[in-house]
Design a protein around this nucleic acid. Sequence first.
DNA 1: CAGTGGTCTAGACCACAAT
DNA 2: TTGTGGTCTAGACCACTGT
Lengths: 240, 240
Amino acid sequence: METKYRVIYKELKQRILFHIKKEGRYQLPSEVNLCKEFDCSRMTVKKALDLLVDEGIIYRQKGKGSFALPEGKKEERNVQEKRVLGLSRTFPSDQVTTEVITFEYIFADELLAGKLDVRVNDPIYNILRFRRINGIPHVLEHTYMSPLVVPGLTQEILQNSIYEYIENSLHLEIAGSFKNVRANMSSKQDQKYLELTETEPILEIEQIAYLDNGTPFEYSFSHFRYDGFVFSAHTQKQRG
Amino acid sequence: METKYRVIYKELKQRILFHIKKEGRYQLPSEVNLCKEFDCSRMTVKKALDLLVDEGIIYRQKGKGSFALPEGKKEERNVQEKRVLGLSRTFPSDQVTTEVITFEYIFADELLAGKLDVRVNDPIYNILRFRRINGIPHVLEHTYMSPLVVPGLTQEILQNSIYEYIENSLHLEIAGSFKNVRANMSSKQDQKYLELTETEPILEIEQIAYLDNGTPFEYSFSHFRYDGFVFSAHTQKQRG
DNA sequence: CAGTGGTCTAGACCACAAT
DNA sequence: TTGTGGTCTAGACCACTGT
């Protein structure tokens, strides 16, 4: 069931994006008026507005009201949003092609065992994939997964979307991830696949992704072409 | 006043970090039990737990309970957390030294006017600062601010913390920011200040930061040494 | 003063998990 | 069936903003 606060959230988001394009600034109706309009309690309206605050779409001020944040901020090509999607789902309208370079089992060492929450010497998928978007070299992904958590991986799945497989075939729920983002010099391997010169760098994202039962299912290093990728984030003061 | 849910949040955070060190896994008391313990309603407990979920400290499962996420994930030196602090406040125990390279007014062009929400040709602070942490070259910060929003900047303020000045002297409330993170080759200027060779890259963070009234007050480009900085983020499926 | 958002209560019903 | 978290209600009091 679609929850009530998500319905309100979506409706308000539509409305904001429409008004912001037309007039620039936009003040939302007060919470009590939204209650009347959507025939619900104030807590429900507040929850919907909280989502909009999290996304950086509105801000709220005690005694004044809720307002749309001036736009014209983000919007760049090849932006990784703050969600946990695979590459295939981040660029649904583009053509993502995947070359599987390595697909094998290795023994978990101390580090991998710690990150993936398995025992040392347990089997681990060691996956190296090279991916293009619309034919343009984009990313070299080095992924470690435990077959205990994500069983039945095949070459074919790797060629498409692992995330899709995890959610649609295994019916596991991907809940979130920790990311560390760095710049680094490109290795010989990076240069070969991403078609970089020796002086051109890469953007590295180290990620641990976990399921809704808290189990980490992926530990990965993604090396992006420096000119083809931006990591985007909206951050705010903690509510409270 | 410290809110009740923040008190609960802090207490639970303490407890989790303690137990996680001792025993690894940790299941929190149920929401109703937490209600009894802290003598409050369930909504208040839930709000406290929401904060912990946002930070990636716990996860929750319908029908099961709330659990601490296995640790051993983040922890690196020189991590920029997902908050809006200046450099001085990100490394409070370290020695941050700042060299002001440029401090002048310029005319707002189309781009700056759009980002800072002022008119074209309005005056804009053009600030270039070079900062070391414990004597080690760290970041070259190119900052644009509107004197209409942040009046009275001086060389001395720049040498310390702009953010401190904004919050403590101007009594403005910093609410959040949009960040774009990229890797890039270092410019001659980057190489000079950050002591990089021609082949060494930088991590660039483009940022628009805004106040709690929605006004953008800063548009900046920070160039970090590639080996001295990691941008860290926790992301999760949208609640709902 | 009236209007706003922030916090908080004491319930309720639901879906889901474990037994 | 019991216990869990997710949603939702219909109020309440507060702090802050504007007039």
